[in-house]
Design a protein around this nucleic acid. Structure first.
Length: 594
RNA sequence: GGGGGCGUGGUGAAGUCUGGAGUUCACGCCGGCCUGUCAAGCCGGAGGUCGCGGGUUCAAAUCCCGUCGCUCCCGCCA
């Protein structure tokens, strides 16, 4: 006989009526009528109503009155149907209640720093400071459970496909590429540092060289960059890689994984196959490499309409190699002031301006610039953009990339659903090898181990060269990315050269890896899914902190434990580290408040 | 590095624009009444240096400057 309980309250149903149960859990709510006392008892399975009636003397009157929210208690009682008219249809256990026959307080609770009750949304700093209480909330408990369900689903699929789960080191060597590394000083080699991995990238490729063939890992990754609602300094990826694999093998596997995850977490089947879109298409139609395809409002090219326009703003842009594009934002019910705000927003985004038009009942276009446009142009706009009465047409004339980006942003702010009730997956393929920097130069869009589609193209026309890399997008969020890797050391050398990394430099940084490629490396490809982002979308959360048990604040602090913290001078001495005087001085200045 | 929002009893908010007694609301807490509620109800009570520092003013939660914290965004995130 278990010491504390023989049942979980949240699981009790009408079929359990008559059973004597021993329950343990927390008092989520209490309703003390002076005589009878109702408790909503919460455990990991959910809630159930416990009734303590003094006539049945489940406990001394004194103990019953002393009960408070969040006390941890043990109750024995009998499952019984609720009285006529007192069934609670809002609770899964609402048909039954437990008539208490004995009660024991296992642990009392001080007055809480905030109410666990779902109806009150406490300040997030406070929630993080008392995360162990925050996690008692149904919403957070549900998020934790769903996260576990999602990861379990991933493991099921990959185990069924004969993947090997392999752990890779979290103390690795720092490389200057990519995100800023999180560093860990070495005591045995004072003055030297490990880095925490940004991803297990090179290790998983080594596993391919090692003959693992099918690898996955639920891997903690670290990137020391600024926080966002979807970015934390440490986060979790489902990392996977396969030998003798090409892009289709990866995408098929990903489809199987996310299908199972959505099924297990949401209980629904996503449509197959997950659609694919090229990067070029995504930019042209949605102005972003991670389109939210839950709604239309696609970007339309108006270049032909204005091919011989006399409207100078448009004509000059086209003559300079720019573009004129627009979106039909639909009937937004915007006033003049509303459109002025959109113009300001477009300018904040870097556009020179924004032309707006409204389709009138008779199909004509009302716009501040209508008088500068010919009849043919006006009707061409309405036709090309499929304008219906009431529709707001928004047009940007600018450099191609700028126009796409601005319209993409406007599209999101005007049309994006504010929840994740619908799920639209998308694979974006054929990413470019390079992306343009703000200064007009080129920089590698991916890590240097990504295979180009054609190395000659990569060398000769960097602006259009395509790489064998791909992203998975869900509801406009980048869920992850991957690529076919370079497995030929000769090709790898050429790619480094084109990327501007000298042979000596490549040797110095990655010599150990380049050498590995020389011992019979199989063709391989892989991917990594951002678990936190995925789960947050499935759980309809706006912020990945809500699906992380102990996240950090935007400034990288943990209000619960106080991390990061100052360490003892003796610790620093062992590491050979001196903290600069002005930094030390700042330690004592951090007069914290509240 | 830059821009925006927020900080008021234990909790959440209103009050701040337009300065005039720590005022208000809900929850929680304490005490009393109450045997079928499920946000239980009714009555009473306690509890705040308005994040912190400085300035303006006869007078500051309110205006100004600085600072700390939380948050959203741009940059950044191969």
């Amino acid at each position: 006989m278990a010491k504390y309980r023989n049942a979980h309250g949240g699981n009790l149903r009408a079929s359990d009526i008559g059973n004597e149960v021993h329950l343990a859990g927390w008092i989520a709510r209490r309703r003390d009528h002076g005589g009878v006392v109702f408790l909503d008892l919460r455990d990991a399975s959910g809630h159930v109503q416990v009734v303590l009636n003094p006539d049945d003397a489940p406990a001394s009157e004194e103990v019953m009155r002393r009960l408070r929210n969040e006390f941890c208690i043990m109750v024995k009682g009998v499952v019984r149907p609720r009285l006529e008219g007192t069934v609670n249809p809002d609770m899964p256990t609402g048909e039954v209640e437990v008539g208490g026959t004995s009660l024991e307080v296992l642990s009392t609770a001080d007055t809480l720093p905030f109410q666990v009750d779902e109806r009150f949304d406490a300040d997030e700093g406070r929630r993080l400071q008392y995360r162990y209480l925050d996690l008692r909330r149904d919403r957070m408990a549900d998020n934790l459970r769903s996260r576990s369900t999602a990861i379990r689903a991933m493991r099921h699929v990959l185990d069924d496909l004969d993947f090997l789960e392999v752990e890779t080191p979290t103390l690795v060597v720092s490389t200057p590429e990519g995100a800023r590394d999180m560093l860990v000083p070495s005591r045995l080699r004072p003055g030297q540092f490990y880095a925490l991995p940004q991803s297990p990238q090179l290790f998983k490729q080594l596993l391919m060289v090692a003959g693992v063939e099918r690898y996955y890992q639920v891997a903690r990754c670290y990137r020391d960059e600024d926080f966002r609602s979807d970015r934390q300094v440490e986060f979790t990826q489902l990392d996977l890689e396969g030998s003798f694999w090409d892009q289709d093998d990866v995408l098929d596997t990903l489809q199987a994984i996310v299908t199972r995850v959505v099924k297990d977490v949401r209980g629904i089947d996503i449509p197959h196959p997950i659609p694919r879109m090229t990067y070029a298409d995504a930019i042209a139609r949605y102005g972003t490499d991670k389109p939210d395809v839950r709604f239309g409002m696609e970007i339309v090219d108006l270049g032909e309409v204005f091919a011989s326009s006399e409207f100078r703003a448009f004509a000059a842009t086209l003559a300079d190699g720019g573009t004129v594009r627009g979106i039909n934002a639909g009937d937004q019910g915007l006033s003049r002031a509303g459109f002025d705000k959109l113009v300001a927003q477009a300018q904040d985004l870097g556009a020179k301006g924004l032309v707006w038009m409204v389709v009138e009942e008779d199909g004509s276009l009302r716009s501040p610039v209508a008088k500068f446009l010919s009849e043919a142009e006006l009707s061409g706009i309405a036709a090309t953009m499929d304008g219906k009465p009431g529709d707001a047409l928004l047009i940007v004339a600018d450099e191609v990339a700028k126009a796409a980006a601005v319209l993409g942003e406007l599209r999101l702010s005007l049309g994006r659903p504010d929840n994740h009730d619908d799920l639209e997956f998308l694979f974006v393929v054929d990413f470019p090898v390079f992306e343009r920097t703000a200064e007009g130069g080129f920089v590698a869009a991916h890590h240097p181990f990504t295979a180009p589609l054609d190395v000659a193209e990569m060398r000769n026309s960097p602006e259009t060269a395509v790489s064998r890399s791909y992203d998975m997008v869900l509801n406009g969020a980048e869920l992850g990315s991957g690529s076919v890797r370079i497995h030929d050391p000769e090709l790898q050398s050429q790619v480094f050269e084109i990327l501007g990394v000298s042979a000596d430099e490549a040797q110095a940084r990655f010599g150990w890896f380049l050498e590995a490629l020389r011992y019979g490396t199989p063709p391989h490809a892989g991917f990594a899914i951002g678990v936190d982002r995925f789960v947050s979308i499935l759980q309809n959360e706006q912020n990945i902190r809500e699906v992380m048990p102990f996240p950090k604040t935007q400034t990288g602090a943990d209000p619960l434990t106080g991390a990061p913290g100052v360490v003892a001078d003796t610790q620093l001495e062992e590491l050979g580290i001196d903290v600069r005087a002005e930094v030390r001085a700042a330690w004592s200045d951090t007069t914290s408040d509240s």
